[in-house]
Design a binder for these strands. Structure first.
Lengths: 149, 149
DNA sequence: GTCCATGCAAATGATTTGCAGTATC
DNA sequence: GATACTGCAAATCATTTGCATGGAC
């Protein structure tokens, strides 16, 4: 999803194209592995566009979530974080999961389809139709060398 | 973990045994599938002990989390929820996961060891040592009959 | 020119904290 | 009796909202 595609999407949805909206999306897209908080996005956008307000950042994020261009992640550290969405590419909703280091706080994303098997089992057994999932694995990354701390 | 065991644990840790602490733990333990919010726990305890304060409930929950007697769940609905802990039994940390109905909001817990395979794979490939995990599956429960929103 | 979008400041709401009184040990 | 625990009210902090101005179309 490049800048022009995004502008077109906004127009198609009857939404207005503003600098703020473009810059917020680009800030999130430019840090695919950093899992930014709203405040961090605000600070990033302010570099290029100092007059933006925090409320606009929140409102834009809300809109991007509804358009499925960004995903929300909650690491339970008191901040809600955002990353460029899996749905932003298209078709196959390739969810990715998160490895969270309990020592340094680093978040590593990874892909895996192992859950599909599990989901099939649950649908069969419980009659529960699964449409989405979120997986967080907590542990210690290579650098923090297993359990050191 | 019954009431007496809990009292003993508190003593062993050098903590004082109070009605408030016993009642908060019992409120959470009595609703193993309801995933209560702090406010709900507060209301439950108030029935038997009207003078309790909400701050005490929060402080007690904090303590119970540290003792691994309760677990925290975040359904991203703006409330943090608590349930009686998997570690409260013992030895084999049998995590359970959550099925969350997008239509009625019901939360169903289930056990599965499928992730062990995945965790082994990640430890081998990434050098990331996993010690805990959280899985949330979103969808539609039997009663809400697949997708009938 | 119309209205949606923005910025600011004030409001909200869950959780935390300071402090003086109270209960446990 | 000392000190940890509690209740209350005030503080905190992320997020939301009201409203008047500004910008997109």
């Amino acid at each position: 999803m490049d800048r022009e595609q995004f502008k077109q999407l906004l127009k198609d949805k009857g939404l207005k194209v503003t600098n703020q909206r473009v810059l917020v999306l680009e800030a999130i897209a430019s840090c695919p592995d950093k899992h930014l908080t709203a405040e961090e996005i605000y600070e990033l956008v302010k570099v290029d566009y100092p007059e933006i307000g925090l409320a606009t950042v929140y409102r834009t994020i809300q809109m991007l979530l509804e358009l499925h261009l960004v995903d929300r992640i909650n690491l339970d550290d008191g901040y809600v974080r955002y990353e460029i969405g899996s749905g932003s590419t298209d078709t196959t909703k390739h969810h990715h999961h998160h490895l969270i280091c309990l020592s340094c706080g680093k978040v590593i994303s990874f892909e895996d389809d192992l859950l599909e098997e599990l989901e099939k089992k649950i649908t069969d057994k419980e009659g529960f139709q699964i449409v989405d999932h979120e997986v967080k694995l907590y542990g210690y990354c290579k650098e923090c060398g297993g359990k050191t701390d």
